Amino acid sequence: MDEVLAELAAMAADGTKSTRSGSKPSLAGAALRKAIMAIWCLCFCGMQWRAIGQLCDIPFNTLFTLFARWTRLGLWCRLLDRLRRTWRLACGDNAEPSAVVIDSRSCRSAPSCFERGFDGGKKINGIKVHLGVEKHGIPLAIDVTPANVHDTKGIVPVLRELAGQGFRGSALGDLGYRGKRLAKAGQKLGITVKPSARGCDGKFLPTGICWVVERSFSWIANYRRLNTIFERTKEHLVAFIEIAFVYILSRRIKRLIAEEASA
């Protein structure tokens, strides 16, 4: 919560208007902190907007409007990038990675979801989340497609987002990312796609840092709203994934500060 408030203050200093204009006053103080906690509970517990509004005594349309505005302004993406760089520097690494790990995960979705497709391999009717993570498992790029989109096509927007951030290096993936078309697309963006086998006889074999993306998917599986997808826009689903990793990083950094203070 403190990290979100700090990022909101930074956005206000940058001239980004994070609050709406109108006759009603914007949320501030304890009400703003309660709204931030309600949005996190929505992601973690998988509650409905109306239910969380009744529990926190804030109209659900106010909460949803606040969440949608912050998502549109890129609050969660900015906060995740800042915390990721802070964590990497605290671990003794460079702020930006030299290699990323790419993978996807199919999730069931409701009929009201923004997109839907059937994954014949996993027998899942829903969407597919594509991640590009660094060695600590924190995503640098996220994209969502219907579950029937092949990995070699669904990962291209992730590679474009990585290239837009200035990343030039290797993208490590499983054998599902083989193919000359994907390799050429990566070369045009300055990214080398390196597929490798991660299993043998049905058993998972960790290869280098390729296993970290599997751990990232297991982390977000703890958030109920990210198990069965109900979001009606792709941007809101990506925002909830970013919120989950913001919470994970915030806890890590807070624990690290406490350990340094006690040492």
Rank of each mutant, 00 (worst) to 15 (best):
D2S: 14
E3F: 14
E3K: 12
L5V: 13
E7M: 10
L8V: 15
L8F: 09
A9W: 12
A10E: 15
M11C: 06
A13F: 00
D14A: 15
T16Q: 04
K17H: 04
T19A: 10
T19E: 15
S23L: 15
P25T: 12
L27D: 00
A28V: 10
G29Q: 09
A31K: 15
K34L: 15
A38V: 08
R50A: 08
I52G: 02
I52H: 04
G53C: 10
G53H: 04
Q54M: 14
L63M: 03
L63H: 02
F67T: 08
R69K: 09
R72A: 10
G74F: 03
C77S: 15
D81L: 15
R84S: 01
R84K: 06
R84T: 08
L89F: 11
A95H: 01
E96F: 03
V100G: 04
V101Q: 09
V101K: 08
I102A: 02
D103E: 06
D103V: 03
S104H: 01
C107R: 14
P111A: 02
E115T: 15
F118V: 05
G121W: 06
G121C: 13
G121E: 07
K123C: 01
I124Q: 08
I124W: 10
G126T: 06
K128A: 06
K128D: 00
K128V: 04
G132F: 01
E134W: 06
E134M: 05
E134H: 06
I138V: 12
P139H: 00
L140E: 08
V144R: 05
N148G: 03
V149G: 01
H150L: 09
G154Q: 02
G154I: 11
G154L: 11
I155K: 00
I155N: 00
V156H: 04
V156Y: 10
V156I: 15
V156N: 01
R160S: 13
L162I: 06
G164F: 02
Q165S: 08
G166V: 05
R168F: 01
A171W: 07
D174T: 04
D174E: 07
G176T: 08
K180G: 14
A185W: 09
A185F: 07
K188T: 15
L189D: 03
G190W: 00
T192R: 03
V193C: 03
K194I: 14
K194Q: 09
A197P: 07
C200I: 11
C200N: 14
C200E: 10
G202S: 08
F204E: 12
F204A: 11
T207G: 11
T207K: 13
V212N: 02
V212H: 05
V213Y: 10
R215A: 09
S216Q: 05
F217S: 02
F217H: 02
W219F: 08
I220K: 00
R224S: 09
F230N: 12
R232L: 07
R232C: 04
T233A: 10
L237V: 08
V238C: 10
V238P: 10
F240V: 05
I241G: 08
I241T: 09
E242F: 00
E242H: 09
A244E: 06
V246H: 01
Y247C: 08
S250D: 04
I257Y: 07
A258N: 12
E259F: 11
E259H: 14
E259P: 00
A261M: 12
